[in-house]
Amino acid sequence: MSGHSKWANIKRKKGKNDAVRGKITTKISREITIAVRMGGADPTGNMRLKLALQKAKENNIPKENINRAVQKGAGTLEGQSYEEIVYEGYGPAGVALTINVLTDNRNRAAADVRHIFSKYGGNMGETGCVAWMFKNKGIFIVAKDAADEDTLMELALEAGADDIKSDGDAFEIITAPEAFDDVEKALADNHIPTEHAQITMVPDNMITLGGEDAQKLETMIDAFDELDDVQDVYHNGDMPDDTDEE
């Protein structure tokens, strides 16, 4: 992950979210509905729902939207039936991308994703063509003024974290998914607030991009994000901070 700034990605993406509030509300609500449908309405025993609700809080999603999404997932309100699909492929300079989709129309979703890959100089591949390049990891972001580095490192590693990195004005704690709850509890018990916490896909290696390739990748990711069916886009392109994107 040399040179890769996860926190820069998150901050930039959150900034973009402000400009597309309606889409973000729809996507997070859809994720809540699916999480409830798969694991029940109690976030205590449903990690996916817990993370979706946290994402809703970070993005200031109205409570009525959250409640409606939960009710749809629980079956007390009529809602659409969504299917989860992961598309994979390559972008500019051979960057690997995985596109996570929640859709009520598989044919439409596949056509839209394939179109974006083709339009911006990429290629959609077969299932599994790039998935092996990514690992599921927990990420916690802690502001540097919220904790001493040595104390935070000792606390996080004792709780089962894999690594802690200094990234600009924040610390980035990386964990295996199964250690996520333990690290979260350790932080909470020691009154250390997190600016962001999620389980996400982290690439094993990065491809450093610059200039035109970085701009092309950014444009492609923006186009994917504009699709209603697309929930998340993961890639292994390492771009300058002014073009970084998740």
Score class of each variant (00 low, 15 high):
His4Phe: 14
Ser5Ile: 01
Trp7Ile: 09
Trp7Leu: 05
Asn9Lys: 02
Asn9His: 08
Lys11Met: 05
Lys13Gly: 03
Lys13Phe: 06
Lys14Arg: 07
Lys14Trp: 06
Gly15Pro: 11
Gly15Glu: 09
Lys16Tyr: 13
Lys23Cys: 06
Lys23Arg: 15
Glu31Val: 10
Ile32Ser: 05
Ile34His: 08
Ala35Glu: 07
Met38Ala: 12
Gly40Trp: 09
Gly40Cys: 07
Asp42Phe: 14
Pro43Asn: 15
Gly45Met: 14
Asn46Pro: 14
Asn46Thr: 07
Met47Leu: 15
Leu51Ala: 04
Leu51Met: 13
Leu53Tyr: 13
Ala56Ser: 00
Lys57Gln: 15
Asn59Tyr: 08
Asn60Ser: 12
Pro62His: 10
Pro62Glu: 09
Glu64Ile: 15
Ile66Thr: 10
Ile66Leu: 06
Ala69Pro: 06
Val70Ile: 05
Gly75Arg: 01
Gln80Ala: 04
Ser81Leu: 11
Glu84Pro: 03
Glu88Arg: 04
Gly94Lys: 14
Val95Pro: 15
Ala96Met: 09
Leu97Asn: 03
Asp104Leu: 02
Asn107Val: 05
Arg108Lys: 08
Ala109Lys: 00
Ala110Gly: 10
Asp112Asn: 11
Val113Ile: 13
Arg114Ser: 11
His115Val: 03
Ile116Glu: 01
Phe117Glu: 02
Phe117Pro: 02
Tyr120Cys: 04
Thr127Arg: 09
Gly128Phe: 09
Met133Ser: 09
Phe134Arg: 00
Lys137Met: 15
Gly138Asp: 08
Ile139Ser: 03
Val142His: 10
Ala143Leu: 13
Asp145Tyr: 14
Asp150Cys: 11
Glu154Lys: 03
Glu158Phe: 07
Ala159Thr: 00
Ala159Ile: 00
Ile164Leu: 04
Lys165Ile: 07
Phe171Ser: 06
Ala176Ile: 00
Pro177Tyr: 03
Glu178Phe: 05
Ala179Val: 03
Phe180Glu: 07
Ala188Val: 07
Asp189Ser: 05
Asp189Ile: 01
His196Lys: 02
Thr200Leu: 10
Asp204Met: 15
Met206Ile: 10
Thr208Gln: 15
Glu218Arg: 10
Thr219Phe: 08
Asp222Met: 10
Ala223Ile: 08
Asp228Gln: 15
Asp229Ser: 02
Asp232Trp: 06
Val233Glu: 02
Val233Asp: 05
Tyr234Thr: 02
His235Leu: 06
Asp238Ala: 15
Met239Glu: 04
Pro240His: 11
Thr243Val: 01
Asp244Pro: 00
